[in-house]
Design a protein around this nucleic acid. Structure first.
Lengths: 196, 196
DNA sequence: AGAGTAACCGAACGATCGGTCGGGACAAGG
DNA sequence: CCTTGTCCCGACCGATCGTTCGGTTACTCT
């Protein structure tokens, strides 16, 4: 009745293994042989679950993109003063980056060699533009400094947030996602300089 | 007497072509066939100038690392109040990133699959630690906020600066390196929030 | 002109690439 | 018991990988 447990791979469980290897060796640097060893099944068996290497990539980046776009649909991202919506989006971005870390990591590293990668880059650009408009609105409200070009500021803020995938590791003992989100919000809006 | 001009490749000129292709397709995604087409010479001719694909990578990341480490040797990075040395290093980092853009881009994308890549990652960590100590000193002076952990702040600032390689393009008409450096310094130290 | 050599080439190397194929092991349902 | 379908396997495919090799072109120097 309830989903009968079977001790075999599904496309989803296989994906989690594949994404991990992709992030360690890079997508192009990962062979199906590498994946089969990491998954503990033969190379040909992988094709029983997925159509090929590229489907694994597509599933992974889709998951990351879905997580990001869902942020923009949330109430706090749609209503209220622009600068507050922006702060909410920044905080939620950190949460999604940390909770979906391996998938977002892969997304942020695609270079556009295949159709799948180019599609991912396009959707990423869409998301960036949506956030840029939020920052633009906050600047128009006078809540955000006007002496730095909006497009430039957006890119730099994205750079700071996206760098999470290069160093954040969900250690049990280490810092939590909440702590990182607080730090990002503080630095993005307040800067390094001590106020005294 | 003066270096007689020859219309052929040297290891350096070949490197500039190779790095460009590496950045477009990714190092692993670039074949020697790709390089030979981009350079306009045959695949085997490449081996007349360099020992192989990995030497090109090593030369490229070395150039990037040398540019970064030279910053730390400069006078303004060695003497003076820590927060001012930090600001100088941040500004110079942006200058090096922009002037050596393709080489630093490649450096920031190595994943550690080969000995060369692991060596590059190690030197990068050294540089990061050196800057982290600068930020730590500035915090001890009370010039930088103490409510964000130094290690975390360093990573986020590096994330913002390093993101340059993802979007900065030296357009003749577009924004210059100076403009970007100003914006980075303003945002890193002052944050987004409008002061009024 | 002739010798020497830097620059280059096409062909081929063994290895590995992503992917295919026919079939075996095994559990579920009759 | 036998059938059915899931899950997996070793063997193999043509293509491409980074690299090597023997040889040719073209420039430099004497």
């Amino acid at each position: 009745m309830t989903t009968a447990k079977r001790d075999t791979y599904t496309p989803e469980t296989l994906l989690s293994v594949a994404v991990q290897v992709f992030n360690e060796r890079g997508y192009d640097g990962t062979s199906m042989e590498h994946l089969s060893r990491a998954a503990g099944i033969s190379k040909s068996s992988i094709y029983h679950h997925v159509s090929g290497k590229e489907e694994l990539l597509r599933r992974a980046v889709s998951r990351a993109l879905d997580g990001l776009f869902e942020i923009l649909d949330e109430e706090h991202a749609r209503v209220g003063r622009a600068v507050e919506r922006l702060e909410y989006v920044v905080r939620r971005m950190v949460e999604v980056l940390t909770s979906e870390l391996p998938y977002v990591t892969l997304l942020l590293r695609v270079r556009g060699n295949t159709d799948t990668e180019r599609w991912a880059l396009e959707r990423r650009r869409d998301f960036d533009h949506r956030v840029a408009e939020l920052l633009k609105a906050a600047a128009a409200d006078g809540d955000v400094r006007g002496d730095v070009e909006v497009r430039l500021a957006t890119r730099l803020v994205f750079g700071m947030i996206n760098s999470l995938v290069e160093w954040y590791r969900p250690d049990a003992r280490g810092m939590g996602a909440r702590e990182v989100a607080d730090a990002v919000v503080v630095l993005v809006f307040g800067g390094l300089r001590q106020e005294r």
